[in-house]
Amino acid sequence: MKTVLAVVGILAVLLGAYLPARAEEAATCPTDATAPAETPVVRVPTEGGPAYGGMQYPRTVNLGPKEVALTFDDGPNPENTRRILAILDRHCVKATFFMVGIYAEKHPDIVREVAARGHTIGTHTWSHPNNLRHFSMASAQSQIRRGFAAVESALASAPVESRARVAPFFRFPGLNDSGHLISWLGKRNIATFSCEFGADDWRAISSAEVRRRGLRNIAYVGRGILILHDTKPRTADMLSSFIITLRQQGYTFAQLVPQEGARDLAAAAPDPLIRPVHKAEKEPSATLGAVLKPSLEPATALQ
C-alpha cells in the first residue's frame, strides 16, 4: 500500500509540473480571449532568392491548412499604420510590412514602432514605381537598393532586436516582377514575395467590401499569404472584424520570418543589399494549386 501511495505521489508531482507548462503554452491574448497570446512563426528559406506566392510562382511558404500570413504594403503611413499596429496588438497578431523607402525616410519613428512591436519588415522599392520591367536594369536595381537602405537607416539607432526585424524579403510593386531582377536578388540571397490572395483594398470600395472580398478569396484558396495596404483607411476600418471573422471560421495566423542565419547570409553576399546587425554605438533606452487573379495595386506609382 505504501508503494502504491508513493507512486501516486510521484505522479501527482510530475503532473503538477506538467500542467503549468501546458497552461503557459495555451496562454490567451490578454485583449482577445479567442486568440493565442503568440503568433506562430513560419521560417522562410531565402538562400538563392526563392520566389514565394501561389498567385505567380510554383511554390509558397510552408503554411498549414487554414493558416494565413498577413502582409501590408506601401507604408509606413502616419494616418493608418499606427491604427493597424494597434489592431494587430489587440488581437495578438504579428504581420510583415513591405515598406517603401521614401516613406521610411520620412517617418522613421513609425518604422521603429513596427519593429519594436515585433513585426517583420521587408522592402518594396524606394518610390513604388508600379512596373520595374519598364526601368533599365541599373535604375531598377537602384530602386531596390535604396529601399533597403532607407529602412535600415530608419532603424540605425534602434536596439539590435529591432534592427534584426529587417528581413531579406522583397515584394515588387504591382507584383510586376522581372526574371532578371529575381535572379539579381537571388544572388544576394533576397527572397521575392507575391501572395495567394488580396482584398482589393487599394480600390475605391467600402471597408465592408474589402472585408467581403478578402474573406471570399481566402475561402477559395484555403491558406496562404494575404496582401493588404497600410496606406488605406478602409483597411484599418475593417481589420479587427476581419481578424475576428477569420478566427470564427477556423483560420489561424502565422508570422513570416527569415530562416535562422538568413540575414547574415544576405549580408555576406557579394554586393549585398542588407547589412549585418551590429550593436549600435548608442542604444535608446527603451505551392498552392488554386490561383486567384484579383487586381492588387493601382496602375500608377505612388507619389
Rank of each mutant, 00 (worst) to 15 (best):
residue 126 W to D: 04
residue 25 E to G: 03
residue 205 I to D: 12
residue 191 A to N: 06
residue 67 E to M: 11
residue 282 K to Y: 11
residue 108 P to G: 04
residue 262 A to D: 01
residue 85 L to A: 08
residue 213 R to G: 03
residue 31 T to I: 09
residue 160 V to I: 14
residue 209 E to I: 06
residue 94 K to P: 00
residue 263 R to W: 03
residue 201 D to M: 10
residue 91 H to I: 05
residue 191 A to Y: 06
residue 184 W to M: 12
residue 89 D to G: 04
residue 103 Y to H: 11
residue 137 M to P: 09
residue 244 I to A: 14
residue 148 F to D: 00
residue 132 L to N: 01
residue 214 G to P: 05
residue 130 N to F: 14
residue 48 G to P: 09
residue 237 D to V: 09
residue 156 A to T: 13
residue 45 P to Q: 01
residue 117 R to N: 04
residue 174 G to K: 00
residue 95 A to Y: 01
residue 256 L to C: 05
residue 200 D to G: 12
residue 295 S to Q: 14
residue 78 P to T: 11
residue 144 I to L: 11
residue 198 G to C: 05
residue 74 D to N: 13
residue 272 P to L: 01
residue 93 V to W: 01
residue 197 F to S: 10
residue 112 R to Q: 13
residue 211 R to H: 14
residue 185 L to P: 03
residue 113 E to F: 02
residue 273 L to H: 00
residue 29 C to L: 06
residue 97 F to M: 05
residue 128 H to M: 06
residue 130 N to Y: 15
residue 138 A to I: 10
residue 218 I to W: 02
residue 267 A to C: 05
residue 106 K to H: 12
residue 166 V to Q: 03
residue 155 L to D: 05
residue 299 A to N: 14
residue 84 I to M: 11
residue 109 D to R: 12
residue 264 D to P: 00
residue 90 R to F: 03
residue 43 R to C: 02
residue 268 A to Q: 05
residue 41 V to T: 15
residue 289 G to N: 13
residue 261 G to K: 07
residue 90 R to C: 05
residue 74 D to L: 08
residue 185 L to W: 08
residue 251 Y to N: 10
residue 215 L to K: 03
residue 64 G to L: 08
residue 61 V to C: 07
residue 17 A to N: 12
residue 256 L to R: 06
residue 115 A to K: 04
residue 162 S to Q: 15
residue 298 P to F: 09
residue 169 F to I: 05
residue 6 A to G: 10
residue 231 T to D: 04
residue 135 F to N: 10
residue 128 H to F: 05
residue 182 I to R: 15
residue 138 A to N: 12
residue 235 T to W: 07
residue 160 V to D: 06
residue 51 A to H: 04
residue 30 P to Y: 11
residue 261 G to N: 06
residue 172 F to A: 03
residue 182 I to M: 15
residue 143 Q to Y: 11
residue 236 A to H: 05
residue 82 R to H: 14
residue 112 R to Y: 01
residue 225 I to V: 14
residue 270 P to L: 00
residue 213 R to D: 02
residue 100 V to D: 00
residue 104 A to L: 03
residue 107 H to M: 02
residue 151 V to T: 13
residue 68 V to F: 06
residue 89 D to Y: 01
residue 21 A to N: 08
residue 130 N to E: 15
residue 281 E to F: 14
residue 188 R to E: 00
residue 277 V to Y: 03
residue 63 L to G: 08
residue 228 L to G: 02
residue 262 A to Q: 00
residue 183 S to A: 15
residue 133 R to K: 15
residue 118 G to M: 06
residue 110 I to S: 04
residue 116 A to T: 04
residue 33 A to E: 14
residue 234 R to M: 14
residue 175 L to Q: 10
residue 292 L to R: 06
residue 210 V to R: 07
residue 276 P to D: 02
residue 24 E to P: 00
residue 48 G to W: 03
residue 137 M to G: 09
residue 47 E to P: 08
residue 284 P to D: 10
residue 89 D to L: 03
residue 280 A to V: 12
